[in-house]
Design a protein around this nucleic acid. Structure first.
Lengths: 190, 190
DNA sequence: ATTATCTATAGATCTATAGATAATGC
DNA sequence: ATTATCTATAGATCTATAGATAATGC
């Protein structure tokens, strides 16, 4: 009960963060208004003072998930430790990333769901994917920009496909084989 | 009204086929018991004489989707026109496949959903994926079996990732760029 | 006075079940 | 007599809204 001044923004961010995590853990269908509010320490009623609809929350949560991934790289790329192609591929295809989708790449987690979403959501997500490909291309040494971009597109596709499949295989040794094999081929060949 | 002898099996297959298509078009969450029965020309009530539960239908529909894809290749591989690595990659990364998920590869359509399913469903789907990798490996010319399998894993990951992302991008030119680029790199290099 | 959040609930949707209906097969 | 399918509905779940409550800010 009770409320506060502009601490509403904190509450708003907390709701979006919870939804962003659940979105990647459970998919679009796993994001229930009541569940998200409860996990954020709130009750259902207040939800619609923050969002016009459940779809509105999904859009914000999806964008937040994309932003978090890019910010993580932008920060490391700016002041923090240098991001390298090797490090990025290594971390993306790690068991840690496979086992923690809630804080991982949203493309791997919900791309299929987004493919079925409205055009606005798809357009937003397409931009994020394009930006990620650009980022990858900038890390790849190549004769010209066109070759780097082509290689980035192949790498990005392989990363997303490999971790998606490795999550299905879960406890099966196949899961680790996929991660290790794709990592080795992406790092040792080109 | 009405019924029949072992025409029940026809009805059963029809329900599974509809579910198998909707599964790939709309994801797990898009498969409603009433919707599927209606699309099969039936009503809700009869459903539970065919399946113990909605989950039971999902398992059968998923397996049917996997079987259809393999049968398509086994048939072509046996009597029909020879399946080649080139043809397979070309068709998998075609706009036709991108735009018709309902009759396409179930891995690209619902792998993320399966990753969140119960262990039995995941184990079944893992086997299908392993079989598909074996099939791909058998089509790849390589010095030894180990190299062929590794290359098959990379190719399979890239195929699944590329078509998943291309479905998000939809009308954007990026969609076609991804399909064409990954196809060219998979076919011209290795 | 305003407003952020809460309690309570309406309305829609979905899975699953109960009982009726009508065609098959002994 | 059996059974495949249908109509009808119970019970659960989920989005969204209405009205109450209590803390902020003029």
């Amino acid at each position: 009960m009770g409320h506060s001044r502009a601490a509403k923004q904190d509450t708003h961010n907390r709701i979006v963060d919870v939804a962003s995590k659940r979105l990647r853990q459970e998919g679009f269908a796993g994001v229930g208004v009541a569940d998200v509010m409860h996990e954020a320490g709130l009750t259902v009623g207040g939800f619609y003072k923050h969002f016009a609809s459940r779809d509105d929350l999904l859009r914000e949560a999806l964008d937040a998930a994309c932003g978090a991934w890019r910010a993580q790289k932008a920060a490391a790329d700016a002041g923090g430790p240098q991001v390298s192609y090797q490090l990025l591929v290594h971390e993306y295809l790690s068991p840690a990333h496979r086992d923690n989708p809630g804080t991982g790449c949203p493309v791997a987690a919900v791309a299929a769901d987004v493919g079925r979403a409205d055009e606005g959501t798809r357009a937003l997500f397409s931009q994020r994917i394009d930006q990620n490909i650009d980022l990858l291309a900038s890390l790849i040494p190549a004769d010209d920009a066109r070759t780097a971009r082509a290689q980035a597109i192949l790498t990005y596709s392989a990363l997303v496909g490999a971790i998606t499949i490795s999550r299905v295989a879960a406890d099966d040794p196949l899961s680790r084989e996929i991660l290790d094999t794709v990592r080795d081929l992406l790092l040792k060949k080109d």
